[in-house]
Amino acid sequence: MNNREASHARDGQRLGQCVPRLRGRPREPQHPAPRVQGAGANNQAASALVAQTLSFRCCSPDEYRWAHLQMGLVMVLAAGTLGAGGAVVAAPFVLGAAGFAAAGITAGSWAAGMMSAAAIANGGAVAAGTTVAVLQSLGAAGLGAAATAATATGGGAAAALLALLF
Rank of each mutant, 00 (worst) to 15 (best):
M1H: 08
N2R: 08
N2A: 13
N3T: 15
E5K: 08
H8K: 15
R10D: 10
D11N: 14
G16T: 09
C18M: 09
C18Q: 13
P20C: 07
R21N: 10
L22N: 12
G24K: 12
R25L: 14
P26S: 12
E28P: 01
P29V: 10
P29F: 08
Q30S: 14
H31F: 14
G38W: 10
G38I: 03
A41G: 09
N42M: 11
N43S: 06
A46D: 09
S47Y: 02
A48C: 05
A48F: 08
L49M: 13
L49I: 01
L49D: 11
V50T: 08
V50K: 07
A51R: 05
A51H: 02
Q52E: 13
Q52K: 08
T53A: 10
T53N: 09
S55N: 10
S55F: 09
P61Q: 05
P61V: 06
P61Y: 09
W66T: 15
W66P: 11
W66I: 15
W66Y: 11
L69G: 06
L69N: 04
G72T: 07
A78K: 01
A78I: 02
A79Y: 00
A79S: 05
A79L: 03
A79Q: 01
T81M: 07
T81H: 02
L82V: 11
G83S: 05
G83Q: 02
G83R: 01
A84W: 01
G86C: 07
V88N: 01
A91N: 05
A91E: 08
V94I: 14
G96P: 00
G99C: 05
G99P: 03
A101D: 10
A102S: 11
I105A: 06
A107N: 02
A107V: 13
W110M: 08
G113H: 05
S116I: 07
A118E: 15
A119S: 04
A119W: 02
G123W: 11
G123H: 09
G124C: 04
V126C: 13
V126W: 04
V126D: 07
A127K: 14
T131F: 09
V134N: 04
V134E: 07
V134A: 03
S137L: 07
A140N: 04
A140M: 12
A140P: 00
G142S: 03
A145S: 10
A146K: 14
A149G: 14
A149L: 15
A150M: 10
A150S: 11
A150V: 06
A152F: 00
G154L: 12
G155N: 01
A158V: 04
A158Y: 02
L161I: 03
L161T: 06
A163N: 03
L165K: 02
F166M: 07
